[in-house]
Nucleic acid binder design. Structure first.
Lengths: 339, 339
DNA sequence: AATATTTACGCAAACGATGTAGTAATATTA
DNA sequence: TAATATTACTACATCGTTTGCGTAAATATT
C-alpha cells in the first residue's frame, strides 16, 4: 500500500541507498550489471521517486503554474490545452489558478507561489491589473513569468500576444466597408494591454476614414455580466444607436446578441457586429457571427515552449521578447451588408 | 532574492528553529510574547514555509489533481471552475491533467500521481476506460479518488453524477411528444457509465411508446471529429433518415448542426434535435438548441467538497456514495414541432 | 520548605533523495 | 614491481520542516 522508497529497494537489492539512486539516474559510477538489476527491481516494485524529497533536494518542482482569469472561456481553455500538451511532453505538471478578474486574488495567488512551489508561471493578468508590483516582486524571488495575451508591458520577460492592433484596424475597416457610419467599441477595462491595442486600431481606422471618435461610443464594460447587459442595452436603446459594434471580447458579443434579441434589433440590418472570439459555434449562430479568431492553442503552446526553453537551461531570467502570432478574420453574416 | 527559511528567521530572532516553527504553527508550547515576535518578523521577512520540506515531513501535498478528458469543453471547464473554487477555499492547489480520451494517457497520468504528489484525485474517465485496474491499483496506494460525471462503477468511492437516466427518458419523451417517429441516438462509446444510462433512458422511453429500437439508429461516435461528421452525415443522407436526434454530448449536436447545414436539412422541420449541453450560446443558435443542461459548476464543487470532507479527517478511504444532481431541460426551437 | 506541575524553550531525529567525498579492489603504466 | 589510474561501490551530509523528548526555570501544591 505505502509507496516503496529507495531505502526499501536498497535493502532488498543488498545495495546502498546511494548506489540505487545513482543506478536509477543512470550514473557512470555504477556498473552495467548492477544498473540492470536495480532497474528491474525498481520496475517490479513499482518504484517512483518521491517528488517532495527530490524537489527539496534539487530545488526543482517539475511544475509550472497557469494563472488566468477564467477557465470557462473558449480562449483560455484552448490556451490551457496547448500549455498542458507541452508540459506533458516535458514531464512537467501544471497547476491552475483562476483569478476571476480579481486583482486581490491575483496577488494572493502569486504570494502562494513565491515559495518555490513552481519553477515558472504562465499568466494572463486580470482586467484590473494596473499596478504590477506584485508581479515584479514575484520575479525578484527568482521564478520566471511568461505572459500570454493579457501581458504586462512593464515586466521584463517574454510575452506572447496576437496582432491586436492590426486586428483592431481590420475589424473596424471591415465594418466601415460594410457601410457602418457609427461604430461603437465594447471594451473590457482600460488597464490591460490588449484592450489598448484593440482600441488603438479601432481609433486609428476611424481617423483614417475621417470618422469622428465619439467618447460615448466607447463602452467600458466589466466583469459583471448583468451590468454589461445594461450598458449594451443603453447603447442600443432609442433612436441614436450605433450601426456597428466591435466587441473586444467574445462574451460582450454574446451579450450584444442577447440584447438585440430582447430589443428586437436586427443583426446585421440595423447593427453589424464583429468580435474577438474563439467560439466554436460562431458559424451556427443566428446570424452567424463574424469573428477575429486568435490562435489560442498555439499561444498557450508557444508560451509553454518559451518557458521550457529557459527552464531547461536552468535560467530563471527571461529577457524581454515579444512573440506575436496572427489572428484570422472570419467574415460571416453578422457584419455584412445585405445586398 | 532567495526565499527566507526557518534557519535564517531563527538566527535573526535569536531562537531555535523548532521554537520558530512551533510559534508559526501556534503551538501551545510557545509563549505568547515569543509568538508575536516571531509572527511579526516572519511577516516582515515575507517567510512562507517551503512546500517540499513540509510536504516531505508531513506526507501531505496540499494538492489535488483533476483528471479530465478535455478542458476546451463547456462542461469540464465549468466543473473545473467549481473545483478550483473549493480548492482555494481549502488552501489547496489544483493540478490539471488532460487525457484527450486516450486510455493510455490516463494510465500514464495515474502512474505519475501514485507517488504522493497529490492528496486526492477528482476525475472523469476516458470514453475508452472499460478496464479499470489502473484505477483500483491507484486506490491501493492510499490516494483517494472521487469520480464525477464519467464515473467508474466498479471502483468503491464517492461518485457525483446527474440524473442521466431520467434525462434520457425526458429528452426522448419530449421528441416523441413533438411527433418524432424515428429517433436516433448519438452515443460516445459504450464503455462509459453516462452513455449507458442516457441510452437506457432513450430505449426505455421508446419501449414505453411501443416504438422500435433499431440498432442502426444508435450511432456510436468517437473522439475523431472528422469521423463523427461522416457518421452523422451517413445517418442524415438519403431518404430514410431519422426525424429526431438525441445527441448524448454537446459536440455531437454541433456536428449535427454542421451536417444539416451542409446537406440543407431544416431543423426542426425535417429533423428535431436535443442534446446534453452546457453551451452558453444554445439560445442564440439557428435554430436555438434544446438542451439538457447539467449543473456542471455544482458537480465540480460537490466533488471537491466530498473530497475535502475526507481529506480533512485524514481519511484516505472514501466509501461508496452516489450523489445525483439534477439536470434541467431547456426546450428551444430545435426540438419543437412547428405549429 | 520540599515536592509536583506547568511553562517555554532547545536538541536532534526523522521525511526520502541526491551528490560529494572517500574507499576498497582491480587495471594500467613507468 | 611500485606508483598511478580507474572502476564500482558506500558513508554521510544536506535540502527545510516538523515533532517527540528533554530540561531548566517558574509556578503551584502540600
Amino acid at each position: 500500500m505505502a509507496a516503496v522508497n529507495l531505502k526499501q529497494l536498497a535493502k532488498i537489492l543488498n545495495l546502498s541507498i546511494s548506489t540505487v539512486s545513482k543506478a536509477l539516474r543512470d550514473s557512470h559510477e555504477i556498473g552495467d550489471a548492477t544498473k540492470e538489476r536495480v532497474l528491474a527491481k525498481a520496475k517490479e516494485m513499482d518504484y517512483t521517486p518521491n517528488p517532495f524529497a527530490s524537489g527539496l533536494r534539487r530545488n526543482k518542482s517539475k511544475t509550472i503554474a497557469v494563472v488566468v482569469p477564467e477557465v470557462a472561456n473558449n480562449y483560455f481553455s484552448l490556451a490551457i490545452n496547448g500549455i498542458e500538451r507541452i508540459a506533458q511532453e516535458n514531464d512537467y505538471h501544471v497547476l491552475i489558478y483562476l483569478t476571476h478578474e480579481d486583482i486581490e486574488k491575483e496577488k494572493g495567488i502569486m504570494k502562494h507561489l513565491e515559495n518555490k512551489r513552481v519553477d515558472g508561471v504562465l499568466m494572463s493578468v486580470t482586467m484590473n491589473t494596473s499596478n504590477q508590483t506584485h508581479l515584479s516582486d514575484f520575479q525578484q524571488k527568482g521564478i520566471p513569468i511568461v505572459f500570454f495575451d493579457r501581458i504586462c508591458n512593464e515586466i521584463e520577460t517574454a510575452k506572447i500576444t496576437t496582432d491586436d492592433y492590426i486586428s483592431g484596424i481590420n475589424a473596424t475597416k471591415h465594418l466601415i466597408e460594410n457601410n457602418c457610419k457609427d461604430i461603437a467599441f465594447l471594451s473590457l477595462g482600460d488597464e490591460i494591454s490588449i484592450m489598448q491595442k484593440r482600441k488603438s486600431g479601432y481609433l486609428e481606422e476611424l481617423h483614417k476614414n475621417n470618422m469622428e471618435a465619439k467618447p460615448e461610443r466607447i463602452v467600458k464594460c466589466g466583469n459583471d455580466d448583468e451590468m454589461n447587459y445594461q450598458l449594451v442595452k443603453e447603447l442600443l436603446t432609442g433612436k441614436n444607436k450605433p450601426d456597428g459594434i466591435f466587441a473586444s471580447v467574445e462574451k460582450l458579443a454574446i451579450t450584444t446578441y442577447q440584447v438585440c434579441r430582447e430589443l428586437n434589433i436586427n443583426i446585421p440590418e440595423e447593427v453589424k457586429i464583429i468580435c474577438f472570439s474563439n467560439l466554436e459555434t460562431a458559424s451556427l449562430l443566428s446570424p452567424s457571427l463574424s469573428t477575429i479568431t486568435q490562435p489560442a492553442y498555439n499561444i498557450g503552446k508557444t508560451a509553454a515552449e518559451v518557458m521550457f526553453k529557459y527552464l531547461d537551461k536552468n535560467k530563471t531570467y527571461i529577457p524581454n521578447e515579444n512573440i506575436v502570432l496572427q489572428s484570422t478574420l472570419h467574415i460571416r453574416e453578422s457584419s455584412q451588408q445585405i445586398v
